[in-house]
Design a protein around this nucleic acid. Structure first.
Lengths: 203, 203
DNA sequence: ATCTGTTTTAAACAAGTGTTTAATATTTGT
DNA sequence: ACAAATATTAAACACTTGTTTAAAACAGAT
């Protein structure tokens, strides 16, 4: 637990960046959160932007890691998708701010994504996309572009967590009941997506 | 077209706020975008935060207006949902940055939402939620909480636009082809959501 | 204890921030 | 035409920003 100053700063930066975004926070805020001097932030990480790039990359890795793990397994594809969605809900239950953080930073600074193409290629190289194409050729899976399959899955996993503040006030529910809605929603996401992708399956 | 200085500033502020967020932009940037002096921004709107509150509220209104319009109509519910999704895709096609803008600001500053409860109540007062409950009692519609029905619809409409930068690089597609994917996705969203909400319907 | 390199600090820096001021230009009403 | 009100400007204000500097505290080795 007794972590070094460098790691204290990294953890503080992670918290602050995710909660406030890269632009709406200060080096001094990160230092304060870490219980250290401002100058130390730059002593270890050269600049705020370098520190942010570091944090962002590690978040992206976490963000995609569980996906790739499921993809690389050799389960049947229906199971892959089911487990993928369930893992995604579990992961987002512990890190609900990450999708908003990632998508927002990418929207504000689209060039920044170029540095992460290798990370993103993990998804491509996992071979899921090819597998899906084969199933479609056999008529075993609904004919639709891979882009849209990806969208289908990620939309129904990530958006419910991103929209939490909006939903809470629209429907006037508390934090706790919304969490219950989220776990209930997981089942709907699985059933709806699988039902749509494999329309020939029996219920 | 020859709009007043006040309106020029408002339009410039809308553009800048949506593109950069409330925190990562400056009053001078808004003034420059409007072709005016910095002091004028505060002359007309008192402060940057007041200007932002004004812009944000109007964006929220646009954001919810088309939804409420559909809700208040007296079409059968399947048509309401279909038209709602189609309108949402059309609206987001012209303002793809709005969901990210709204959800991000709400995530960063959850207290700010309290000022918009009246706006949000438009949705409640439209009566759709009651209508859906009645259909469920008749067994005409899948039994699931209204919160999750809302989530189902909004996830599949808004997320595809929010994830555009991420999707473009994951699948290596251009702006144009992604737009085509979006219009194709609209059909999938309609069919999947309706198919799941009304499982007894024939295809 | 003294020297070594490393870690930490307080202070300063220039640049940029939101906001205000006081003077100037422009419009408006008479 | 003139005077009152409004619109616009450049300049200044106090403050915060990211970053650097130069000195101090600390560690380990000899």
């Amino acid at each position: 637990m007794n972590q070094s100053a460098e790691e204290k700063i990294k953890h503080a930066a992670l918290r602050v960046f995710i909660q406030k975004g890269s632009a709406n926070c200060t080096s001094r805020e990160i230092a304060r959160e870490a219980g250290m001097n401002v100058a130390l932030v730059n002593y270890y990480f050269r600049s705020k932007s370098k520190l942010f790039a570091l944090i962002f990359e590690s978040v992206m890795q976490d963000f995609l890691k569980s996906m790739v793990q499921v993809f690389s397994s050799d389960l049947p594809i229906r199971e892959k998708i089911r487990i993928l969605i369930e893992r995604e809900f579990e992961f987002l239950g512990q890190h609900p701010e990450i999708p908003n953080f990632v998508l927002n930073e990418l929207a504000r600074n689209p060039e920044a994504i170029d540095g992460f193409i290798p990370v993103l290629n993990m998804v491509n190289e996992s071979g899921v996309f090819d597998e899906a194409r084969k199933l479609q050729e056999r008529g075993d899976m609904r004919q639709m572009d891979i882009v849209q399959i990806t969208l289908l899955i990620m939309s129904n996993c990530q958006y419910p967590f991103m929209a939490q503040p909006l939903m809470k006030v629209i429907h006037g529910v508390s934090n706790e009941t919304y969490k219950e809605h989220l776990t209930a929603h997981k089942t709907h996401a699985v059933n709806m997506v699988l039902g749509y992708l494999f329309p020939n399956d029996k219920l």
